[in-house]
Design a protein around this nucleic acid. Structure first.
Lengths: 207, 207
DNA sequence: CCTACCGATCGGTAGG
DNA sequence: CCTACCGATCGGTAGG
């Protein structure tokens, strides 16, 4: 007797991977929050029972940690790539805010979780997250300070402009819809222009 | 025998009010999130046992609802007061963004809860909240559209500028510290200027 | 991958 | 205001 269906039949045991668990967690954490999501919901979304999840993760907390680690690393890597080789503060700010805005249109779930569920992270990871955020914030602030000193930006308090630009970009994750009228790159383009305006960019071509 | 101490001694039964419960909930929801806060924590902060809370509220959900209702009403009232009688789009945007920014520096806990724990609100209140938010967003967007039509603002997509301005202001609640270098009104002042810049305000005095 | 089960904690109620 | 207590659900483990 030969098996008739080499491909899995309609009813078969579900098989799951670590990535699938992480992706389901990402979706549900973004929607209901870390504490608002039960492991049973993640299991249900994957078609398995709750205990089966433990073959692919160590704990619920570890899922959150993985999401946060991945995302913050990505943000810093984006920044480096975007500003590497650029010396003009205007071009550096334009490029840094463009990739930051773009990321928040294309990685919405990650951004929502990282920015909403920070407090649910156990130590020492919560402190590590804050440190990495600060690193990005200070790097952006430095660009603004450099631009002010060079006379191409005009702001009273560089820290305020830095906060404003960052959070404005982060918030894209909250309102952006994939079926909306503008694609991610066009949103990012406009937000990058907003960033230069916030910085008080005096160069005509910039705005 | 006469009572020796007419004023409460050091050890006395705690007495609590509805406002005190709401205030404690506000503090803890802002810190740990709605699902991350247990009623036992609220009770502990007030020095009573959990069941005693039910003399001052109907449910945990009602606490969230009260916080949200109060805050959204305040936002819309602020907007009306700030823009009433003003016809110039520049002045309207300056004033609307000023009070919005100021509110988020002075009502941080409320802003954090309303913007983070929306998903934890039961229907029909979640829909009501979204409606009120949309109302404020559209009012701000209309100012920008009016300004573009009048030739005093320059933006490609008024909706994007409106989102950017709103979320930039909301985020003040996340980074502002009362013991920081700038008082709320000075932060609001600078953010109001950022708002005019985002709108591409062409009037010199504005920025 | 599953069933069976654990202690802990949750929001909320009864009754005084 | 309290103690005593409820059913439900949580994250996680044992064992196959």
């Amino acid at each position: 007797m030969v098996k008739v269906t080499p491909v899995p039949a309609a009813e078969t045991r579900a098989t799951v991977t670590s990535d699938a668990v992480l992706d389901a967690a990402l979706t549900l954490f973004a929607r209901f929050g870390y504490h608002g999501t039960a492991l049973s919901q993640i299991a249900e979304m994957l078609g398995v029972r709750t205990p089966s999840l433990y073959n692919h993760m160590r704990s619920k907390q570890e899922l959150l940690r993985s999401i946060v680690d991945r995302t913050t690393s990505g943000v810093l890597a984006d920044f480096q790539t975007a500003t590497d080789g650029l010396t003009d503060p205007v071009e550096r700010l334009r490029s840094a805010s463009l990739v930051y805005a773009l990321r928040h249109a294309t990685h919405r779930r990650e951004a929502i979780v990282v920015n909403r569920d920070t407090a649910s992270l156990d130590e020492p990871h919560r402190t590590e997250l804050q440190d990495r955020r600060r690193e990005h914030e200070h790097a952006l602030r430095q660009i603004i300070s450099d631009g002010v000193e060079a006379g191409v930006f005009q702001v009273d308090t560089p820290a305020l402009a830095s906060f404003a630009i960052r959070e404005m970009c982060v918030s894209i994750a909250r309102w952006f819809r994939e079926d909306g009228p503008l694609p991610p790159d066009q949103v990012a383009e406009q937000y990058s222009r907003f960033a230069l305006r916030i910085a008080g960019c005096t160069r005509d071509s910039a705005t």
